[in-house]
């Protein structure tokens, strides 16, 4: 009798698992940038929210290949998923978005850029982040001196940061952007930025010849900081700022050295807000706003410990 009850309960358990899996809504997240710490945190936030909602989640990393994002969207549409989330410039994957639209599958962008084929895009305000950090630099150097910029125009969310910083620095007649560097990001962005900064320091050996380093994300700022320390020029007061406030940047800021500020995006918050947005879209709700901004915070030595 006991074994009979055991058998029935196991069968029921198995069936309930199978049924819940079969009924679970299928959501596919596709990104070419899963190796990036920020993307990993978006995905973490998304996963947490998805597990609460009981979704059957598939996360796909195309390892930098944008055309493969289109292919994987086509596969997901074929698979008849309920919703798709992308983390790549939507204008480059219009072919895939059109396939999803034809199949009436909602697609939400996770820090991807706005597009008419997306239900909405959940992101931080890149313009505001670049404005806040570049104005911080301009104020700290009292509106004069040579500034080194680290940019990456190939990736639209980072490209807009550079555009804003250009405008801010251009508005100060005594600020001179002495170099606008695009580092090689294949090694993560630190090593090549450090090498480029070392070359600039060697070319400008006089104290005070470089007033500040503005970086469109944290890794080049860290590379620049390492170059300045290695050159023994930490006490010249070169101001360094980054964007993203990753753990390494926070650690540097907390030490009160040249790396003075960064801006914290709420990556996990973007992930969970994206999950909420796709959930609403899958339930048939019309999302009117084409962009949903998640708030950011300027991190300095004053609040880095919070």
């Amino acid at each position: 009798m006991k074994s009979c009850i055991k058998f029935i309960s196991f069968t029921l358990l198995f069936l309930s698992m199978f049924v819940s899996k079969a009924w679970a809504e299928k959501v596919t997240v596709i990104t070419p940038y899963l190796a990036q710490p920020g993307t990993q945190m978006y995905v973490e936030g998304f996963k947490n929210e998805a597990s609460k909602k009981g979704w059957d989640l598939n996360i796909i990393d195309t390892k930098g290949d944008v055309a493969e994002v289109i292919s994987r969207i086509e596969d997901a549409v074929n698979q008849k998923v309920d919703g798709i989330v992308i983390n790549v410039d939507p204008s480059q994957i219009a072919a895939g978005l059109e396939v999803a639209a034809a199949a009436n599958i909602p697609v939400v962008g996770m820090d991807s850029g706005a597009d008419p084929l997306l239900v909405t895009n959940v992101t931080s305000n890149g313009y505001a982040m670049a404005a806040e950090t570049s104005v911080y630099v301009a104020n700290r150097i009292e509106g004069k001196g040579n500034v080194v910029m680290f940019v990456f125009d190939a990736f639209p969310p980072v490209q807009i940061r550079g555009v804003i910083a250009d405008a801010v620095f251009g508005n100060f007649p005594d600020i001179n952007v002495m170099d606008r560097i695009t580092p090689d990001v294949q090694d993560g962005g630190i090593a090549d930025s450090r090498a480029k900064m070392e070359a600039l320091l060697a070319a400008n050996p006089e104290a005070g010849s470089i007033a500040a380093v503005w970086a469109a994300w944290d890794q080049p700022a860290i590379g620049a900081m390492q170059a300045i320390e290695a050159a023994g020029r930490s006490n010249e007061g070169i101001v360094i700022v980054g964007i993203d406030a990753n753990p390494q940047a926070r650690d540097a800021i907390s030490q009160g050295g040249n790396f003075e500020a960064s801006i914290a995006q709420d990556f996990v918050g973007i992930g969970s807000a994206t999950a909420n947005a796709i959930g609403r879209a899958m339930s048939g709700e019309e999302i009117k706003s084409k962009v949903i901004y998640v708030p950011t915070v300027l991190i300095t030595s004053a609040n880095v410990g919070n």
Partner: peptide, 16 residues
Amino acid sequence: MYSSRVASSNPTQGSG
């Protein structure tokens, strides 16, 4: 073909 498919050109697009 890649540029046509992604409606854009990126200096690393063919690396894979």
